[in-house]
Simulated assay, not measured.
Amino acid sequence: MTKFRGCIDIHRGVVKQIVGGTLSDASPTALKTNYTSPHPASHYAELYRTHSVTGCHVILLGPGCEEAATSALAAWPGALQVGGGVNGGNAAEWVRRGAAQVVVTSWLFPGGRFDMGRLEEVGREVGRERVVVDLSCRRREGRWVVAMDRWQTMTDMEVNKETLDMLSDYCAEFLIHAADVEGLCKGIDEELVEALGKWVTIPTTYAGGAYSIADLETVERLSGGKVDLTYGSALDIFGGDKVKFEDCVEWNRKKDAEVAV
């Protein structure tokens, strides 16, 4: 059963929606911002809490975001995932601050190469059930390759069934941004969503390119209901004009009702 999941992306302490592929330390002027919110991160946490939108993630896009992320966790303690700069040394601290789960990506790939020891370390610190592995990826020669450092650096890991089967023993969920379409509002990567539906065996959230409420139906159909969906720039609470937050909430209510029958 596909559900809508919320996000809170924080850049320089402010909630923003950006075009994912433009975020770079090497070329900061290339950053394309779709929306800068007048509201603090805690506002969105409270909004998700009020409407029972569970499994939402708070992502720190660079330095200067810890205070904002902490305020979001305080607004809904024990319910949100937090990622961006998470490592073996600070994962437990984020849980103490109120994170339900921690999202790890770049720290797992020193020098761009996957290090299983680091994933095991995070699991020892907070428990496997609190670990979400972010396998955000970009297309390369017909494959999906994990990208780190805010999607700028390619790693040695391909997103495929073998990888997902291996990692699922060490984490509770996957978060997968299709970085090539992130923030563009021009459609999801349907091939990736369909592949994930065939491959994943644990809860998985897809993000990137969603721009219509019908995308929830599409993701449910393509993935067999095994993948959840996040909206960003298209959503009205982030300045978008294509998807209404209330419609996403209603979708979740209907899905919950179906389960209850």
Rank of each mutant, 00 (worst) to 15 (best):
G112V: 06
P203Y: 07
P28L: 03
T70W: 01
W251P: 11
L167P: 03
V159L: 05
A195D: 13
A179H: 05
I176A: 14
H51T: 10
S233T: 09
M148H: 01
T218C: 11
S24Q: 06
V104F: 10
I202N: 09
H51S: 13
F114Q: 04
V15L: 00
A72P: 09
E190H: 09
L229N: 12
T22D: 07
P38D: 14
L60T: 13
R124H: 11
R139C: 13
Y48S: 03
P110D: 01
N252C: 11
A30S: 15
F245A: 02
C248F: 02
Y206Q: 02
A91P: 03
T2I: 04
E93I: 10
P203D: 08
C137S: 12
A234R: 00
A30K: 13
A260G: 06
K254M: 14
H177D: 08
G112T: 04
A147G: 10
G62Q: 07
H39C: 13
T153F: 01
Y211K: 09
L108V: 03
A99N: 04
P110Q: 01
G78C: 09
K244M: 10
A178W: 00
V200P: 09
G85D: 08
L23Q: 01
D169M: 07
E173C: 14
E190R: 14
L80V: 02
R113E: 12
R128H: 07
N252M: 10
V104Y: 07
V15E: 00
R128G: 11
